[in-house]
Write a protein that binds this DNA or RNA. Structure first.
Lengths: 333, 333
DNA sequence: CTGTTAGCGCTTTCAA
DNA sequence: TTGAAAGCGCTAACAG
């Protein structure tokens, strides 16, 4: 492949001039520019961004690290990030960690080695120490998305998880449910805790004792939802309603219930966090509390890019409100 | 940030030695290695991959370019690609083009500048010329996914679109439908044409004249499906069944129908290409022909990486079979 | 306006 | 087993 010297030779100028043309600098005589442009075309030159980033100390990459690429919650967020990045001429690259902290470490390491300019991450890590040394050393603008990492000095964009849980409990209690089961998220993730806390608070506020047996651990995946609901159904006195800590868990529940020949909402009421837009358009079924996903993406990207452009100062936290989308997965009791 | 010289100084060795340790080469005395490792740690050194790729001429990046990150069809494929890439220690980065050829051009250009090692792409381009010069110049192993680009010398992994269309028509005809509408995909995309061709063939095979008015242009997006179904419903004699060229179009149709107070399948039977796994688990509704998405991803990655490892030879084409998933969106007539 | 030249951070001969 | 030094392809003073 042609390099800048080939182009320079062909155009009869120095590499500096070619560089100027490539980077659209002024102070190149129109005629010279033309000759260079011609040479550029003839050689089929494609600049080596790795070389240039070596001197420029900029890659123009905004990296997004998310735990599950097949969860529409995250892909919608990415759209928001892309919108914002495009405006600043930054390229977005996406990396997936599969909710796997080890994989996440590798991915982050990789991105740091590539010297990406900024990082937006919904972390699968349970403790700050799993990734923070890497992050600090990199010294890259960092925005935490959806999930907080305590002690990590970084901007944070999240939703009001506690509030969301309360909305859900209030809704179910309003329908007359008293035994409300709760499937938690993945252990160690901040949203898992907040959502559970919100559930506990709201239960108490309704005078309902949240019995430990009603709370089962999940993993933010279908599998966890599936296993959790089996446990709940085995209870001497099973819940009449269940809250899943995210959309995928709810789907796991639905699948398990179907196998058992049970019907939602006839035999059990079900709600969860996070919408699945496509599904709800196919058939508006699942009642959920939704987050303003796209906006969360935009805001996260904004924060990251502001830092890049030199905004110093203390880390900021942006909290979004959740909204109840009532559909048909619950019944009065 | 520390560079290799800082480490070398701290360890009291030359940069060459440090480089050897970083890259896990042999012929480093155990003692020396230890000292270097120590210095590596103390400095918090993170190698600059851009610098190393300059000399190594390898980035260890497999790039995936897809037209719609929110379409589960594509995200599932990515999973397959990731599986395969992980085995070869390649990192996967994903870029989204929004079905926009211009954006796609920019994205590809960007990836070529970054000198990614291989490219898997479901192209939004309508003509080869839109992107091929770029691709050829880059000289990068290239695998086309789902969508063919005629004249582009590249491996191809796709499904039997014509066959899928036939399955769908046969199914509907079997239910007694004779006026079967067809919403095409985005103009200029290979799958759009193949699916339409399959529809036409199959209709004829059933002795049904595929009237032009029954064929409406879509765009592989919800919007297109929505607009198309409005047109079909305005027909003097509307179809009793409709085939959408992909999952998102079908969802657009469903939304439009709901607004009109129409019910599927009571008032209209609906089928489409490509499954939406999550949705079908929430409520198994839409009857579709599905492609073995995950496998398509793995195969695509395999082909790409084989080329990278020197496999020369003529371009290969892998064709997958489609499967009918019968659910509840159709009725007998 | 243009060219020369010294890096950017790392790898890779080549000698020792 | 180790180090010196010449690149990899580009940018950024600096001088002219």
């Amino acid at each position: 492949m042609a390099n800048i010297y080939d182009v320079a030779k062909k155009a009869g100028v120095s590499v500096a001039t070619v560089s100027r043309v490539i980077n659209n600098e002024k102070y190149v005589a129109p005629k010279t520019r033309e000759r260079v442009l011609k040479a550029l075309n003839e050689t089929g030159f494609i600049p080596n961004a790795n070389a240039s980033s070596l001197t420029k100390k900029r890659t123009n990459i905004l990296a997004v690290v998310i735990p599950d690429l097949t969860n529409p919650f995250f892909t919608e967020i990415i759209r928001g990030i892309e919108d914002q990045a495009a405006q600043r001429k930054m390229a977005v690259i996406v990396a997936n960690t599969d909710e796997n902290p080890t994989k996440e470490r590798r991915v982050i390491r990789f991105l740091m080695e590539k010297r990406v300019d900024a990082l937006v991450i919904a972390s699968a890590a349970r403790t700050t120490t799993e990734i923070s040394p890497l992050l600090y050393r990199g010294g890259v603008p960092l925005v935490l998305l959806d999930r907080q990492l305590k002690g990590l000095q970084a901007d944070l964009v999240r939703s009001d998880d506690k509030g969301g849980a309360k909305i859900l409990v209030n809704y179910l209690a309003g329908l007359g449910h008293r035994r409300i089961g709760f499937i938690t998220g993945k252990k160690g993730i901040s949203t898992t805790k907040s959502r559970l806390d919100g559930y506990l608070d709201a239960m108490k506020a309704h005078g309902l004792i949240p019995e430990p047996e009603l709370i089962v651990e999940g993993d933010f995946q279908q599998k966890g939802g599936r296993e959790a609901i089996f446990k709940l159904l085995e209870l001497p006195e099973p819940p009449t309603a269940v809250i899943a800590s995210n959309n995928l868990e709810a789907i796991g529940v639905l699948g398990a219930l179907r196998e058992k020949g049970m019907d939602v909402p006839r035999d059990l009421s079900l709600v969860c966090f996070d919408d699945i837009e496509l599904a709800s358009q196919v058939y508006p079924f699942l009642t959920v509390v939704a987050q303003p996903v796209r906006t969360m993406g935009t805001v996260a990207a904004q924060l990251a890019l502001e830092r890049l452009e030199g905004e110093a100062g203390k880390e900021r936290e942006v909290v979004m409100q959740m909204t109840l989308l009532e559909r048909k997965s619950c019944r009065k009791v």
